[in-house]
Amino acid sequence: MSFRKPKPSTANPLPVLPIVASLVLIAFLLLPTLVVLERGVGAGFAGAWLNPVVLEALRVSLVTTAITLGLTVILGTPVAYLLARYRFLGHTLLDTLLDLPIVLPPVVAGVGLLLTFGRQGLLGAPLEMAGISLAFSPAAVVMAQLFASAPFFIRAAKAGFMAVDRDIEDAARIDGASNLQVFGFITWKLSFAFLLEGLVLTWARALGEFGATILFAGSLIGSTRTITLSIYAALESDLNPALVLSAVMVFVAFGLLFMVRVLTKNRSF
């Protein structure tokens, strides 16, 4: 079998139906985003930045997602490394199960976190004895974000580690490099674009987390009310902060998307 590019021919009529169908869906996908942007910028975009509701929401989201990213890198990198470099009993099963939070509805994640780490949950009593109270704390926000977003990093990092040429690692080992040195100087650096892409995706998911957070962490200005929760709460009283925060999210989303594009393009090896 041979595949040949179809020759452009004048006899081939314009694909009217696909074009019309595409336009409908494209308009459907882009119009709401543009309207949010337009209304958000129109709703006194500059003035709303001084609104404590907006500022507090941004602060809570930035702090919690930063901690989530840190934890994801520290705890997720070893998992991805083990999955990429070693074969063990249950490897495939574990690999699949770790993707579960990506597919799971966020509300289910929230219920799961509550039933596990809540005060009446599985680990509630031991945690209470240790003097740890997660309910309604920013820590609960971080846990909800970590649960929902860490798998994105693990996936990308695993793909990155697998793409690194093992011969380079082995060569370094022969030259007397320790495992940690090999990882730090070779594996990490060569898969950096993948890791960064994973981080961007993780951040995007953490920033947008809503269902698990509202259930597990509650909603209090300056403590657990993130951007998404703030949009939800503001929608019900004062529309302006909600519109401004929504516009901010559109900008951030576009920026993240752009970053992912650039990163995946630069993956030349």
Binding site: A135, G218, S219, L220
Partner: peptide, 19 residues
């Protein structure tokens, strides 16, 4: 510790023993 947007959410959080 939390300002819920719906009265049933308040009830739920007490029912679950979180509050």
């Amino acid at each position: 510790v939390s300002e819920e947007t719906n009265v049933r959410q308040v009830a739920l959080k007490v029912q679950l023993g979180e509050a």
